[in-house]
Design a protein around this nucleic acid. Sequence first.
DNA 1: AAAGTCAACCTGTCTG
DNA 2: CAGACAGGTTGACTTT
Length: 272
Amino acid sequence: MGSFDDISSTGLVLGLGFSTTADQKSTKIAPVVLDKGPSLSFEPSLRLSLSGDHTYEKQEAVKKVNNVTRGPNDHQSVDLYRQDSAASSYSNASVKRERDVGSEETTTEVERLSSRVSDEDDDGSNARKKLRLTKAQSALLEESFKQHSTLNPKQKQELARNLNLRPRQVEVWFQNRRARTKLKQTEVDCEFLKKCCETLTEENRRLHKELQELKAVKIAQPLYMQLPAATLTMCPSCERIGGVGENPSKNPFTLAQKPYFYNSFTNPSAAC
DNA sequence: AAAGTCAACCTGTCTG
DNA sequence: CAGACAGGTTGACTTT
């Protein structure tokens, strides 16, 4: 990470903005992200992390490859239903019953749930089995997600048909995928803010030290004390010393302007 | 066995 | 009001 002066020269502004990730260009998701300005150069973690999806996807792809390439006897239970996406119709009813039984379920709720799963429970088994999408299915879904992170009904139907899944499954996959994208972006933003905080803390420490040194110089400088008070001004905010209407370069007591980034919240003085 | 992953689900909110 | 979505949760399954 570069020095703070590197940062300050970029005019860094911390704030809420919009993500620049390609995945989110066409989405309604507007996660909290940092608007870093045009020339931010100190935040390697952000750059590395913004494309985290790819890392994630790679891991997933590897996992799925491992699953696929595993011997047929190794994980029979997995392969049995994971390829049955057309009939990936393991029952959800049992799960819902688990949750609903014992609670103050109403008849209408039960009816609603029953009707919702009635077309899925076609094998008569109530055992909840977890569907794992095949590598090809995941790849196609990801490809589709890159194009548009939300689906209209027509797209959903078509994708479901292509994938041999139910439209509801496609819908759920997209919902979960959006949620994961947002979560990752939040983590990236959190990392970025942490680094900003560390940098600012360090700069604050440095400025305090500099201030102490300046105060020591002030005390040890008799000429300074002899100057008329009206000719010197000190910004109450940043405590920089400046003359009135004079060339700063000729004033031995004027500190050179530093390219600190301007923050109207922490730097209320217009002179700064 | 604990931790992680993720499909499926529920609920509340928003929008046309 | 129906449908879409976000956010949160559950539980089957996998990985460590």
